[in-house]
Measured scan of single mutants.
Amino acid sequence: MEVRTIKVFTTVDNINLHTQVVDMSMTYGQQFGPTYLDGADVTKIKPHNSHEGKTFYVLPNDDTLRVEAFEYYHTTDPSFLGRYMSALNHTKKWKYPQVNGLTSIKWADNNCYLATALLTLQQIELKFNPPALQDAYYRARAGEAANFCALILAYCNKTVGELGDVRETMSYLFQHANLDSCKRVLNVVCKTCGQQQTTLKGVEAVMYMGTLSYEQFKKGVQIPCTCGKQATKYLVQQESPFVMMSAPPAQYELKHGTFTCASEYTGNYQCGHYKHITSKETLYCIDGALLTKSSEYKGPITDVFYKENSYTTTIK
């Protein structure tokens, strides 16, 4: 009895394709271990004539594949690729409408935090270190965002349907971005203890939790000093293409032309909904596939993004 075979390709990165001759009487799992086709788990399936010449994702289970996976995804987590594939199996079914010149995501599976993050990423200057993220990001900007969303979920250790947080998501993504040249110098002034300067680099240099107003941050924000008295913390120097200011959701007025974009969060910790506000020729609110415009805006804002380049204080 002759062994019926077909020729397929296996890959971990969709760049390096490895030619395989597979036995049609055995499952993919018996031949390769966990195997995925377009995100779908085909591990328990036997090869079919229609699979001839198709590319299958496999887990990096030998040295060659491990090197290829690390170079593309910059992670050695053995569960990463499987999590990416199972997320992709959902995100490829989502709709990605162009809204006001940006790629958004039609609401499904509690994905409003991903839509808000995706919209924000198209408006701030950011370059990702893992080629996987950078490639998928370019495709997302062009309207094909399924891979990018699935990668975000995998890097953030999230599953489809789980509630997510924009600030946490951005923080994970910033860790995989090139923020080497970003720098922030802060000064804390206390009447009792004097003053202390701190220099922050990388992710810490672009994120701040405690106030939404970048102007206020430049002037000074009140913080408790270690001595128990009130101290003032203010920005001395900022070198970065953008800054992200966050605070627990509270009524906040966004003035046209003073910011790049913002995240609105309605609801409580267990259950809520994100919308995205962007400042173009007027203010726009993007909620999944829905767009509304207004000249002014007041609502429960939790993150505001500002364009920056270089700032030095005039406070002496």
Rank of each mutant, 00 (worst) to 15 (best):
Y57T: 09
H176T: 03
S263R: 01
Y137T: 06
G161F: 05
T159Q: 13
V12Y: 05
G272P: 02
C112M: 07
H276R: 01
A177I: 11
A142G: 13
E204T: 07
M85E: 11
T260I: 15
L59H: 10
R184F: 00
Y265Q: 06
T198N: 09
D13H: 10
P130G: 07
L121I: 07
R83W: 08
V21Q: 14
T232E: 05
E215C: 01
V203N: 01
Y214G: 01
I223G: 14
P131Q: 15
Y269G: 07
I277S: 01
Y155T: 01
G194T: 02
Y138L: 15
L254S: 01
P224R: 15
L133N: 02
Q216S: 10
T169R: 08
I105T: 04
K106L: 11
L186N: 03
Y311E: 09
E296K: 09
K127W: 06
Q196M: 11
G202C: 01
F56T: 06
P131F: 04
Q175G: 09
V58Q: 08
G82I: 13
D77A: 03
D180C: 10
W94S: 02
T312P: 07
V42T: 08
G29E: 12
T278P: 01
Y208E: 03
V67F: 14
L119N: 01
P34E: 15
P97Y: 05
T314R: 15
V166H: 10
Q222F: 08
T278W: 01
E264W: 08
I6M: 11
M207F: 01
Q222K: 12
Y306D: 00
Y269W: 13
C271L: 09
A146L: 05
K293H: 15
Y57A: 08
T76R: 10
L291P: 00
G288R: 03
F259Y: 02
T266K: 13
S295Q: 15
Y73P: 07
D77R: 05
H256K: 09
N157Q: 12
C285F: 05
E204W: 04
H48D: 15
A247M: 03
Y274E: 01
N61W: 10
S171V: 10
T43D: 10
V221C: 07
T55Y: 08
L151E: 07
S50N: 12
L126P: 04
Y57W: 09
F80R: 05
Y36W: 15
D62V: 06
V185Y: 05
S50T: 14
Y28C: 06
T91V: 06
N157S: 05
S240N: 01
L17I: 15
I6A: 14
T302F: 08
A115P: 04
K293Q: 15
L65V: 13
T116C: 15
H276A: 04
T313Q: 15
N16P: 08
N157A: 03
K44E: 15
I277R: 03
T35M: 10
V21M: 14
P60H: 07
A117V: 15
A140V: 14
K46H: 12
V166P: 06
T260M: 15
F305W: 07
S50Y: 11
S104F: 05
K233N: 04
C285Q: 00
T116L: 10
L235P: 01
G143Y: 08
F259D: 02
L17T: 12
M207Q: 01
G101K: 07
G288F: 07
N111C: 01
A247E: 04
V22F: 02
D41V: 06
T91S: 08
Y28I: 05
D38V: 11
T19D: 12
A115N: 04
V99G: 10
P97W: 14
G29Y: 08
N157W: 04
P131W: 09
N14K: 08
T282P: 02
K46W: 14
K255L: 08
Y137W: 07
T313M: 15
C193H: 07
F242Y: 07
V304M: 15
G33H: 10
A154L: 05
T91A: 01
T91Y: 03
Y297I: 08
T43R: 13
H273V: 02
F305E: 00
H276D: 00
D109C: 09
N14P: 11
P248K: 11
L186K: 08
Y274A: 04
K255D: 07
K46L: 14
M209T: 14
D23L: 08
C261F: 03
C227I: 02
Q238L: 02
Y214Q: 01
Q270D: 14
H273D: 01
T159C: 13
A146V: 03
A136I: 02
M209E: 07
